[in-house]
Design a protein around this nucleic acid. Structure first.
Lengths: 256, 256
DNA sequence: AATTTTTTGTGCGATTATCGCACGTTGCAG
DNA sequence: CTGCAACGTGCGATAATCGCACAAAAAATT
């Protein structure tokens, strides 16, 4: 199990949970939804879904256009609470930008959330974003990306093993590693702070190197670099990337 | 009134609204909160606050560390639904990046949310972000920034007047315009598509130019540029900025 | 260090907000 | 124009929520 909710069963608010499910069902593929659609997706009665959606409308998180509903930019304010509270704008982003321009290559930062790695920041994004369409909040598969695997290397051994055993394992390309045993070999026992490389497993022709690190506050994160695989054949390039990642991790360790 | 919720009173879920208030009270200045603090901020009974927070913990939106609670990265997934749904990663960001590098200057994109302008994207952020600490989801005052005022210029005249009359008006610097009458002169009657400039009103020594636009889908947005005021004395620079903003707005109009 | 005072965590019954059925309506297709 | 299906919404029964009261912990005071 990824999180340890310590089994707090029924002193949680059911209505609130349903409401959050409604909010969550506005995802990347569902820009606008009608009330019946929402009810079906969340397995709610139409009347219930209606009341919850109207609550979101009244509070400004959702906009109504005729009979269809869509998220309003206000949802970003919630994310802003997280980002600004941890000083992503003031402290993290500048560090990332600095090392990205020094390396001349994009860098990205991710944190784990359950079975996913979540994109939390990036710098020098000219190359990577248009191709993959990543934004803040994008979810990456934990086991099929170097960022995700790097996050695993700093996890407690028990958690690491559990995640390798249970996290979804999809074949994205023909080079994807789909054998959990092989994954355990790759990242099951490496010491924390080992750079992780993946070539063409998630996206053909793209190689990525990532480094997980444990922050002073205890938070886990991973920084990564992604570029065309060809670049990695240039002498010294992999070493340069890894050195930058190490320095960047060291700089970020105290900030989060 | 900014939004028109059309007075849907009591077919909204009270519990859900309270839960969202709890989620919202984790803002930039409150990274970690205890249950009693949350209860006080949201004016809730401690037991109620507890149940709502534990719900957030169980669903993974909040992390518990001893007696204090803080947002988890999962909150970004909600924002990701908005960002990816509108193709910010795939379509919007590349356009922004393109024009930003062409101009050699940072560009930023904002949308209105009530009395605030909300930062939704930026490109070429080396200069502006470290200084102001803006992130996706940052809230800017509508009347005191060029981005905010540009958003007003594309609003319906009635809404525009209402916002000029009612939106908060804080003096950020000594150059801030704090007279609503003067603001009405500046932006109350200009035609949609007029660039808006502000010099040192929000931040001393910084001049910003912004342009509001109405997208094909009806969404309102504004793109802006911000730089040291000195740059604007170079001949041709203001014109170059405005031309870029116009082209960028035209390119974005069909995307949102 | 011991005691007082304040603050916090949580069980339980009354009450109230919520659920989901039912009906009336709207949009769509034949 | 008619029939059908999907949708929006009032209302009573019911179950989830509220907030009090108590216990425990922490903090402040003596």
């Amino acid at each position: 199990m990824p999180e340890t909710p310590e089994i707090q069963l029924s002193d949680t608010s059911l209505t609130f949970a349903k409401g959050l499910a409604v909010l969550k069902c506005f995802d990347a593929t569902s820009v606008t939804l009608t009330i019946p659609e929402i009810a079906r997706r969340c397995d709610l009665d139409r009347a219930v879904a209606r009341r919850l959606v109207l609550t979101l409308v009244r509070l400004g998180y959702v906009r109504q256009r005729g009979r269809s509903y869509s998220l309003s930019p206000r949802i970003l304010v919630l994310a802003g609470g997280f980002l600004q509270g941890r000083r992503f704008g003031l402290a993290v982003q500048p560090v990332l930008e600095g090392f990205a321009t020094q390396l001349g290559q994009p860098l990205m930062l991710a944190m784990r959330d359950g079975f996913d790695a979540i994109y939390v920041a990036h710098a020098g994004s000219e190359g990577v974003m248009p191709r993959l369409g990543f934004t803040v909040g994008s979810r990456l598969p934990l086991l099929s990306t170097s960022l995700g695997r790097a996050l695993l290397t700093v996890e407690e051994p028990a958690t690491r093993a559990a995640l390798i055993a249970e996290a979804p394992l999809t074949a994205w390309t023909e080079r994807s590693v789909t054998d959990r045993g092989r994954l355990a070999q790759l990242i099951g026992a490496v010491p924390a702070g080992t750079p992780v490389r993946a070539s063409g497993e998630f996206e053909p022709g793209v190689t990525a190197t990532s480094l997980g690190f444990r922050c002073d506050g205890g938070e886990l994160a991973a920084i990564g670099h992604s570029s065309e695989s060809a670049l990695y054949t240039e002498p010294g390039f992999p070493e340069q990337v890894e050195a930058t990642l190490q320095k960047c991790a060291a700089a970020l360790r105290g900030l989060l």
